[in-house]
Amino acid sequence: MIRTAQVGASERSVRVMLYSHDTFGLGHLRRSRALASALTASDPSASAIILTGSPVAGRFTFPERVDHVRLPGVTKLPDGSYVSQTLGLDIDETTALRSGLIQTAVEQYDPDLLVVDKEPTGFRGELLPTLEWMAKRKSARCVLGLRDVLDEPAVLAAEWERKGAVDATERFYDEIWVYGPRSVYDPTQGLPLSDDTRKRIHWTGYLRREVTDAAETPDVPYVLITPGGGGDGQAMVSLVLEAYETDPTLTPHAVLVYGPFLSGDVRDAFDARVAKLNGRVTALGFDARIEALFAGAEGVISMGGYNTFCEVLSFDKRAVIVPRTVPRLEQWIRASRAEELGLVRMLDEKRDGMNPQTMVKFIRALPSQQKPSQAGADGLLDGLDVVVDRATALMAAR
């Protein structure tokens, strides 16, 4: 349990701040929300603020004593560059604005613990002024949180060198929390971290998920189809629809959740195809209560994002993972390792072929798959408990 922080001779409630840059997708925000929920639940007086650039942060519910600050959003273009979403500022001006807002929030909230998701220096280095300021004051503990897989080692090493991320990790962070088991994968392999920094790495295990908000679910058996945020899920969604179009006898029915970033003409075209399937596939736009849909599903077809994988394990669902391979190999590495361990099946484009007949075969085989629990998944899901223990120890030693 987190304990109240000592301030001179008095006490005050613990304050936790979590930073997730969220330039694209939902992963960083959803991971931060799960962490904030666990940390505040462990102490009825603790509070947490999430700093996020997610454009859909306002569509999520947050637990009591957890709030969020929305940073100005940015959009990643196909060439890898970024632009401001709405403000008419160039990217340098937008980054400077975000950086100032972050530092002001930290100065005013005065957290006891700052948990930074994935990017040691923040988006385009926006965290560095705040980290320098905090290091001089020595007022809070800083933790870098990493998902179980980041990218292939050589690519990750080049990226971290370009961003100055290794130096920032060495200088500013008291601990590194890897939100996965070391037995599955080491996301820091290939990074030139010092021995002293590596001693500060703690593998927490995966972050268990629960149904936090009730939602209506179909009263017939269904397979849940989810591309996560949906921004890069067009190919997977199209392939599933092709499977149901190709085989009129394919069961069970499917519930397709597009995600908030699959929209416009692309979604309209998918909706037209769904309408022709006579109710065998039901499509939803975005549901922040997707945990309830996971819990009720017969099986899952998804991409290989971190949060979706945690939900597959947490709700013990037979799953077929269709990982993306660009711009990162993260999802493919996670899915292939999980398949080796017997936790899921992976549909690999080079090995299996991305065609509707293959997808039909995988969906039909779902009932005969073993559940993740049969491969020992329950022993991999201690992440939130370990995070609470580490946070308590860090702040007690301040």
Results as ranks from 00 to 15, higher is better:
residue 378 D to T: 14
residue 377 A to S: 15
residue 346 M to Q: 10
residue 347 L to S: 02
residue 300 V to G: 03
residue 285 G to Q: 07
residue 345 R to Q: 08
residue 368 S to F: 10
residue 317 K to T: 03
residue 371 K to L: 13
residue 333 I to V: 11
residue 284 L to E: 15
residue 368 S to Y: 06
residue 299 G to P: 03
residue 301 I to H: 01
residue 291 E to T: 06
residue 299 G to M: 04
residue 298 E to D: 13
residue 333 I to G: 08
residue 345 R to C: 13
residue 335 A to I: 06
residue 292 A to G: 08
residue 381 L to T: 10
residue 351 R to L: 11
residue 352 D to H: 06
residue 286 F to A: 10
residue 367 P to N: 01
residue 281 V to T: 09
residue 306 Y to L: 09
residue 384 L to N: 11
residue 327 P to V: 12
residue 333 I to C: 13
residue 355 N to D: 13
residue 357 Q to C: 03
residue 301 I to P: 05
residue 347 L to K: 00
residue 385 D to K: 01
residue 373 S to T: 12
residue 293 L to N: 08
residue 284 L to N: 14
residue 329 L to I: 06
residue 383 G to P: 08
residue 377 A to F: 14
residue 319 A to W: 09
residue 350 K to Y: 07
residue 366 L to W: 02
residue 281 V to K: 09
residue 354 M to Q: 00
residue 284 L to W: 15
residue 373 S to M: 13
residue 359 M to H: 01
residue 374 Q to D: 15
residue 372 P to K: 08
residue 370 Q to I: 14
residue 363 I to V: 13
residue 330 E to L: 06
residue 315 F to I: 02
residue 293 L to C: 12
residue 301 I to T: 02
residue 386 V to A: 11
residue 340 E to F: 01
residue 359 M to K: 00
residue 332 W to H: 14
residue 380 L to W: 14
residue 289 R to G: 04
residue 318 R to I: 06
residue 372 P to S: 06
residue 343 L to G: 01
residue 282 T to Y: 09
residue 380 L to K: 02
residue 298 E to H: 11
residue 355 N to W: 04
residue 364 R to Y: 03
residue 360 V to N: 01
residue 319 A to N: 09
residue 286 F to W: 14
residue 318 R to K: 15
residue 307 N to P: 07
residue 381 L to R: 06
residue 320 V to E: 01
residue 356 P to W: 04
residue 330 E to K: 00
residue 342 G to T: 04
residue 312 V to E: 10
residue 358 T to Q: 05
residue 378 D to N: 13
residue 285 G to M: 10
residue 354 M to F: 12
residue 316 D to C: 11
residue 346 M to I: 09
residue 329 L to C: 13
residue 340 E to H: 00
residue 358 T to L: 02
residue 370 Q to G: 15
residue 348 D to A: 12
residue 285 G to P: 10
residue 368 S to E: 11
residue 292 A to Y: 07
residue 344 V to R: 01
residue 349 E to K: 00
residue 324 R to N: 13
residue 330 E to Q: 05
residue 344 V to E: 07
residue 341 L to S: 08
residue 286 F to T: 05
residue 328 R to S: 12
residue 347 L to T: 02
residue 283 A to G: 15
residue 346 M to N: 05
residue 377 A to P: 11
residue 348 D to K: 00
residue 312 V to H: 08
residue 324 R to Q: 14
residue 375 A to Y: 06
residue 353 G to Y: 03
residue 382 D to R: 04
residue 360 V to P: 06
residue 341 L to H: 09
residue 308 T to W: 07
residue 327 P to C: 06
residue 386 V to C: 04
residue 307 N to V: 09
residue 293 L to T: 10
residue 324 R to K: 14
residue 366 L to K: 06
residue 345 R to V: 08
residue 309 F to H: 08
residue 334 R to E: 07
residue 344 V to S: 03
residue 373 S to C: 14
residue 342 G to P: 05
residue 380 L to G: 05
residue 352 D to E: 01
residue 374 Q to W: 04
residue 329 L to N: 03
residue 326 V to C: 09
residue 280 R to K: 15
residue 298 E to C: 12
residue 300 V to E: 04
